[in-house]
Every structure is written in structure tokens, then in C-alpha cells.
């Protein structure tokens, strides 16, 4: 298989270091508003790296695509600075509230409108949703195979791609005979490159294309909350059955008390 065109799906997520500022309000049972900045989902940097590395080897073009609100464009700028040739943001009010199914559908339509690639690379999961569903569901909408849990990727010329993927107690090696194929990658696969100064300069000259519902030519009922089979039906605060006893005193005293606890429990 010839890999000429690679699409990387990325997601702008609330900065994981500050994500805990978004909480369920115990009184209203709704999410507290917090002004947490959006950053690129960590695993998507590994997806970008996989795409850029392969593209360098086989001479392919890399397009980064994301679905999100307008500020998500900054994350796509970062992908351009990493080395993506083009970037597309799928953004429309009607996309809001999408579950994994509606997200995968919208991304698939964006990818189709852009022209079918030979390879789609996604991060295995996102730090805010953590479903791991988008890549497999995307493969269904694109009517192509998927390999999730990717830890190794090798282009074997005309013979295709050789992909290693994590299992619970080992790994499997899969040969992809022809594209397109969707790969969901793990952090084990690679170390993402740093953004270079020249990358930032190049990215400055590039535009992030913004496509809305109309541009994708799909029905509003198929996207966002309306297009999502699942809904959140309730939120509550979890209650613990444990009552904490604090270990206090000097650092030494606290350590000694903990050693006593460990000994009493038979750990030591």
C-alpha cells in the first residue's frame, strides 16, 4: 500500500493539570464553570509524531483535523508547528454535546470531504473523555479496518504496514494489506518531537481551515447532542464510607506512626 495522505485526529482538552477545577456542584448537580485553558490531548502528540515520522519515510502529506469550539484552533496551530502540512477545524454550534458516536461521525464526514486518506492516526483516548471509542467508531463510518493499542508501526514498502498492538498480557502483530486504515496509538509507540522555532515560523504563515455543518453537508440531527445515542441522565457527588484519622506531628513522628500502622497490619 502506498501511503500518500495521512490524517491525524486531535482533540483540544482542558489542561489536565487544571482539569480538577471542573467539578460537579453538590447543590445544583451541574458542572461548575471553570476557565481551564484548552491544550492538545497528550496522546494526540504521539499520534502526530507517528504520522510525521511515517510521512518523512514514505513522502506523505499530513493533515491534522479536530472537532471543537473556535479556541481549539490553537491546538491545530501547534500541530502545524510540529510539522503538519494542513489543519482543519470542524466547528459549529450544532456539534456541541456530541458523544463518541456523533464525534466519530462528524470527524468521518470531515475526512471524507477532505478526500479519503490512506491512513488515519488517533490517540487511543482523551484525557477528558477516556472512552477509547472514537478511533474504532471512526473506522466504521469510514468503512475501513482499525487497530487499537498501537505500540509499533513499520512501513514495509508495497507490502503494507506492520503494526504491533498491546494486549492485556502481551501484544499482537497485524499486517495491514491495504488502506485506508485507522490506528489508535499509545504513548509506548514513540516520543513526540519538540516544536522547533522554524516550525513556529512556518505555522504562522499557515491558516487553520474552519469547516461548519454546511461545509460538511450533513444534517444537524446527525451531529452534536441530537446525533448522540447516549445522554448524561444524572450527576451526583460520591460519598465515602470511610472516616479519616489524620496522622500529625513532626515529619519524624508521622513516619514513625505510619511504620507502627504498617507493623500492626502485618505489612512489616
Amino acid at each position: 500500500m502506498n501511503v500518500r495522505k495521512i490524517v491525524v485526529c486531535v482533540k483540544a482538552v482542558p489542561d489536565p493539570k487544571r482539569a480538577s477545577e471542573i467539578r460537579i456542584d453538590p447543590r445544583t448537580k451541574t458542572l461548575t464553570r471553570a476557565d481551564v485553558p484548552l491544550v492538545i490531548n497528550q496522546l494526540d502528540r504521539h499520534a502526530m509524531e507517528a504520522a510525521l515520522k511515517l510521512a518523512g519515510e514514505v513522502g506523505a502529506e499530513v493533515t491534522a483535523i479536530s472537532m471543537g469550539p473556535p479556541p481549539a484552533a490553537a491546538v491545530l496551530k501547534e500541530c502545524l508547528a510540529m510539522g503538519a502540512g494542513r489543519a482543519v477545524l470542524l466547528s459549529d454550534r450544532s456539534f456541541a454535546g456530541a458523544d463518541a458516536y456523533a464525534t466519530a461521525y462528524t470527524l468521518a464526514k470531515g475526512i471524507e470531504v477532505d478526500g479519503m486518506p490512506d491512513l488515519v492516526v488517533c490517540g487511543m483516548s482523551s484525557s477528558d473523555g477516556s472512552t477509547e471509542w472514537v478511533a474504532p467508531e471512526l473506522s466504521v463510518f469510514l468503512d475501513c479496518p482499525v487497530v487499537t493499542g498501537v505500540i509499533g508501526l513499520e512501513a514495509t514498502g508495497n507490502a503494507g504496514l506492520k503494526v504491533s498492538a498491546r494486549l492485556d498480557n502481551g501484544y499482537r502483530v497485524v499486517k495491514v494489506n491495504g488502506g485506508p486504515v485507522v490506528l489508535a496509538v499509545t504513548r509506548e509507540l514513540n516520543t513526540p518531537r519538540n516544536i522547533s522555532f522554524s516550525g513556529i515560523i512556518k505555522a504562522r504563515k499557515k491558516e487553520v481551515a474552519i469547516w461548519n455543518l454546511e461545509r460538511l453537508g450533513i444534517a444537524a440531527a446527525a451531529v452534536g447532542q441530537d446525533g448522540s445515542p447516549t445522554i448524561i441522565s444524572g450527576m451526583r457527588v460520591a460519598e465515602s464510607t470511610r472516616k479519616v484519622q489524620m496522622i500529625e506531628g513532626t515529619r519524624e513522628a508521622k513516619a514513625e506512626e505510619l511504620v507502627r500502622l504498617l507493623a500492626a497490619a502485618g505489612v512489616l
Binding site: E137, T148, L167, D168
Partner: peptide
């Protein structure tokens, strides 16, 4: 590892939702 790949593939083909 298998279940997490298989389940969303089945769900999307059946056009249904799936929680994780």
C-alpha cells in the same frame, strides 16, 4: 484490550451508544 476494540465496532455498526 480486545473488548475495548470489539465493543465500539459492534456499537457503531448497530448505530447504538456505548459507555466506557
Amino acid at each position: 484490550a480486545c473488548g475495548k476494540e470489539l465493543a465500539p465496532l459492534v456499537a457503531a455498526r448497530l448505530k447504538t451508544g456505548i459507555s466506557a
